[in-house]
Design a protein around this nucleic acid. Sequence first.
DNA 1: ACTATACAAATCAAGACTAGTGCGTATAGT
DNA 2: ACTATACGCACTAGTCTTGATTTGTATAGT
Lengths: 194, 194
Amino acid sequence: MNRLTPSPSPSTVADTDRRTMVLDSAMVTFARFGYRKTSMEEVARAADISRPGLYFLFSSKDSLFRAAVTQALERDLAAVEHVLADTGRPLAERLLAAFDQWAGRYIGPLTRDVAVVIEDNPGLLGEIVVTTPQRFEQLITNAIAVEAKVEAKQAAAGQVAQTMISASTGLKHQAASRDFYLERLEVAIDLLVR
Amino acid sequence: MNRLTPSPSPSTVADTDRRTMVLDSAMVTFARFGYRKTSMEEVARAADISRPGLYFLFSSKDSLFRAAVTQALERDLAAVEHVLADTGRPLAERLLAAFDQWAGRYIGPLTRDVAVVIEDNPGLLGEIVVTTPQRFEQLITNAIAVEAKVEAKQAAAGQVAQTMISASTGLKHQAASRDFYLERLEVAIDLLVR
DNA sequence: ACTATACAAATCAAGACTAGTGCGTATAGT
DNA sequence: ACTATACGCACTAGTCTTGATTTGTATAGT
């Protein structure tokens, strides 16, 4: 029906890039001012297109926001998957990098707003905000279970993953900087997968 | 000068109890409606004294709130200390009980408000809200260090304590019920002090 | 060592009104 | 496959007034 299904038209690739780029700048704008105080005018200006043009790409402010957040989360999850797949590196190292992609990069003074605007609008976003963390947990659990040699440790992989995620969540609230978050989380990971 | 210094008068004990009881009901009222929307009239009514009588005991709304929060935190910390001191019980068990006193009991639908009203008014409360958690961390660290037989584990006691607190903080945000919090934290503690 | 009553001053909630902003759509043009 | 312009509708922000609360204190009484 539209660009969600790949079409043979020659401009499809360019169109997809357009949407992607618009969603990127939209996410930044939403993060900066919050959902409510961000106008479609501002999003359009940031994306360097007209406001009606924006409505041509996204049917409403809601759906634009959902699409922007979905893209961001999906991208993060893909990065997490990619980092964890590099079995050449030690497990602890991969886990730290995975958590950094998932949460660490949203801790600084500016980037924090991204996490905030997502957590502030669960009603608008629907199930994405609950399913994506679940998929993240599954990825972490698998990465730990695969590495575990003893059976007992394999069974505990889920518990280790959950504890690690709780520690990460706590640190997200305690940490003022990405570096602080990473330092503390590295310690936590070492304690939990040793 | 006043009741902060023990006086030889025969009514001193009764006075202290009065203040204590007033502070208890005040804390409940503040938690229920928030600091701003709680009137001195309501606090007085809940404590079953007159409003001028309340001003006789506490010079202002600010100082009443500070005193109420301080007493609650101090009591929690004392309970934590007491639980940890019972060296007859296994370490993991004592730690779980300690965290339950510190955070777990403030997770349910009603009790949550206590934690919220404290976190919502850091400006009014001053340094209490930062020093008390530090003292809690110290208590946990000591409890772990004392138990550790190997030197290496003693050195890591601080790291274990910090990780445990981060997990607890994360769980406080993830958990809807006290039971969920306790189940997950028990797992975390077992993983960290095994 | 309080209670009951009262009071000035400050703060706050409610209502009404106005001006402005923003969403979604339509239309004409390129 | 868009841009430019415009329009109706809803909603929000700001302003003002008015009435009610609330704070802190004072005073008289027990």
